[in-house]
Design a protein around this nucleic acid. Structure first.
Lengths: 219, 219
DNA sequence: TTCAAATCAGGTAAAACTACGTAGTCAGTT
DNA sequence: AACTGACTACGTAGTTTTACCTGATTTGAA
């Protein structure tokens, strides 16, 4: 019997997939939770085999969570189930050593098979993502240096600027709110465009949204 | 026995919630589908009582779909389950005469109760959305005229401009692609800012995303 | 003490936004 | 057939904001 834990922010989804997985006779959902709080303790005490986790990069940095889980629980097989599927994320997941990556559109059977295959030396993925993943691997070879940079380097202050820009403030207003010089705000904007490798600030905002660096009411 | 149909783009979610609902002994999921195609026919032949639908405004205009379902199948109780929860959408749903509106974070019991209560003269909603919905109703009184306008009025051409802007093209490039004058593009941008009641084009892009007027790789 | 982050600031060019106005097309209505 | 309204398109002209370029200082954590 495979013991499973689920981390996903949507209760309805958690409970639904729990019912689904419990309907398979070789697996059992032990617990589910909406975030990473107390996850470590729970994982230890319930002796989980498989963890399904929806990474939402907005709150509490899902990647950091997954990364620390990976090192602390090398034996637990961790599968990502998410709607985020940018190249950066997929690569990062492979790099960290996730056991699988599935979109929420996956065929239940594919997920079941991945969970059932007690093979921790293999990266399982959704057939819908196959092309994407292969593209990613090719793409990565060309841009090796860039990835980590574009991932780790958006600073706190820069994030504040993005958030305020998403609230339709212009540079002058942002400067006013943050009590800094307009020029400084403009420097941040400029650097963000560089870092995200985009052409204008709309690109930056979309980058942040795609990679779930921020949450906005309505998303 | 309440006969249920599910429309949602994510297979995993569909199958999961199907398993969940089937586990309740007073309801049965008859079919599920990822989009509105053939929905009319299926609904007629399977004599559905309750329809759960995730409106994604990007493809095929979910609101129009729901609206036509409402008029053609007045007896079917239709519940919206979605992550979109802008004021515009909620209001529109009440206006059309939906039977309920639930976020994907809803407690399964709340959904179960709403489905079980065979009361079609009542708008059921998620307790998480309660404040939001009440706010919306207040907000609506102040802006009565505006809502429909802001909803129906984004034209095809304007959508093209938004889409291209989301691909980081500036006005000049957009003009070039659409084979129109830069001034015209700027007129479109201006009108979009007016229509969406935002302050700049970042606001327009976010409006479009929130209301699922467009899809972008990675969302 | 290094190093990255955060801050400030100058000029210039490009783009975006504001505010007007005109005018043809096309669909639906009277 | 004439009218209406919405959509699309183009124009002038001015202001504001952003983007790009360069340089620099301060600050705080490793």
């Amino acid at each position: 019997m495979i013991k499973i834990a689920i981390v996903d922010e949507n209760r309805l989804f958690r409970k639904s997939i729990e019912t689904l997985l419990n309907s398979y006779d070789n697996m059992k959902v032990i617990f589910d939770t909406q975030d990473g709080n107390d996850l470590h303790e729970k994982l230890i005490e319930s002796n989980i085999d498989v963890l399904l986790i929806d990474i939402q990069l907005n709150k509490m940095n899902g990647i950091a969570l997954v990364e620390s889980l990976r090192t602390k629980f090398p034996k637990i097989r961790i599968f990502i189930i998410t709607q985020i599927n940018t190249k950066e994320i997929i690569l990062k997941m492979i790099e960290i050593g996730m056991d699988g990556f599935f979109s929420k559109n996956t065929e239940p059977m594919q997920l079941k098979n991945a969970i059932s295959a007690m093979d921790s030396s293999c990266f399982h993925y959704d057939s819908d993502l196959e092309i994407m993943i292969k593209e990613t691997l090719l793409w990565e070879k060309r841009n090796q240096t860039k990835i980590k940079y574009s991932f780790t380097s958006i600073t706190k202050r820069e994030m504040e600027v993005i958030k305020l820009a998403c609230q339709e403030y212009n540079s002058i207003e942002i400067a006013d709110i943050l009590n800094i010089n307009v020029r400084t705000v403009e420097t941040h904007r400029k650097r963000l465009i560089e870092k995200t490798n985009t052409k204008n600030f709309i690109g930056v905002v979309l980058y942040a949204l795609k990679n779930r660096l921020l949450t906005i009411e309505g998303f």
